[in-house]
Simulated scan of single mutants.
Amino acid sequence: MRGKLISGVVLTLTFVTGCTSSVDRVGGEAAPAGSPAGSASPSTPGAPAPTSSGPSAPATRSSSPEAAATRTSGPATRESEIRRTNWPNAVIRSLEFCGESDDSVSFRNGSNGLDVPCRILPGGARPVYADFVTEEPANAPKTEDALVLVELGNPDAARRQALVPVQLSYNGKERYARPVILGDDSSPTGDRVMTFISYRVVDQSVQATVRKLDGSTETRRWRTIDFAGNWERY
């Protein structure tokens, strides 16, 4: 299992689709709850990132996860495999949060289609990318990971959200969920739900702005506490 977060990885975020950053491996940020759902398909281009000043430096990433790397005077860095994920139609293994008996959850058009559905990237949320999950064995090739928002429950009933770290298998083809960061339970009647407004990976932690049941917002932080990758709030 991968359990230690790799230090030194800082993920910068923005609410504005298409804004760019000079930091490589830049991801997106969750859109406000209730915003129109957007496609996370990698086929939709976003705004280009600024090019590097070095003659052969790798291209930087856009804050939009769908954006292709911009060209530089040297060869462009190949887009990471995790960024190629078609999230609305992804197959994610070990995602126990969704309550399925199968080993994997298959999303179609953003939902697993059950009576109590699990939806991925609801409300126009976007994935965040960073190399923040430790590879095992230690000499395994480093790969980028993703942090995605998932919601369990019907829109008109009790629902719960979770942030799900997703990593590639060693063959680079399958996507596995790591231990999730749970949002608060909804109100007993289901009319009030805690939502993740934004989230990011900074150094060895996950930081998020959440809207609580009473409508107020606060910033929360989590870090891993063991080799299994479980999280604690601090």
Rank of each mutant, 00 (worst) to 15 (best):
S62I: 06
D203R: 01
W87Y: 06
R84N: 12
V150K: 05
S43E: 08
K173V: 15
G38D: 11
G27Y: 03
G124R: 12
M1E: 05
A177W: 00
Y176V: 11
P50R: 02
P75R: 11
P179G: 05
L182R: 14
S63M: 04
V10W: 04
A228T: 04
D191A: 12
T44Q: 13
S101R: 10
T219P: 07
I120M: 04
V201N: 07
T51I: 14
S187M: 08
G229W: 01
E79T: 06
V9D: 00
F196Q: 00
V91Y: 03
G38Q: 14
G54P: 05
T12I: 01
S111D: 02
T219L: 15
K142D: 00
E81S: 15
R220V: 13
L147K: 15
G153D: 08
N154M: 12
W231K: 08
G190Q: 15
N154L: 06
T219H: 07
T60I: 06
E79Y: 03
L11F: 01
T60A: 14
L95E: 06
T195A: 14
R61E: 01
P58M: 02
A68D: 05
A146I: 12
A57L: 10
S62E: 04
T72H: 13
V180T: 01
E100G: 07
R126I: 04
L11A: 00
E29C: 12
R159V: 11
A37S: 14
P141L: 10
D214A: 15
G229S: 10
R160F: 09
L182A: 05
L168H: 03
T51Y: 14
P65T: 13
D185W: 07
K212V: 04
S53M: 15
N230W: 07
I82M: 04
V202G: 01
T217G: 12
A47I: 04
E66P: 02
V91R: 14
L152V: 14
A57R: 06
Y234W: 10
D156G: 13
T85P: 06
I6T: 09
P50T: 03
S106P: 10
G153F: 01
A158F: 02
Y129L: 13
V150H: 11
P127K: 07
V201A: 09
V26P: 00
N109C: 13
V210N: 08
A162V: 08
Q204C: 04
R84L: 09
R220N: 10
N109F: 15
R192M: 08
V201K: 06
V105M: 05
N154W: 01
E151N: 11
L121P: 00
S52D: 05
F15Y: 13
A33F: 12
A67Q: 02
P58Y: 06
G99V: 05
R119K: 13
V148R: 01
V210Y: 02
L213S: 11
S53W: 10
L5N: 03
L147C: 09
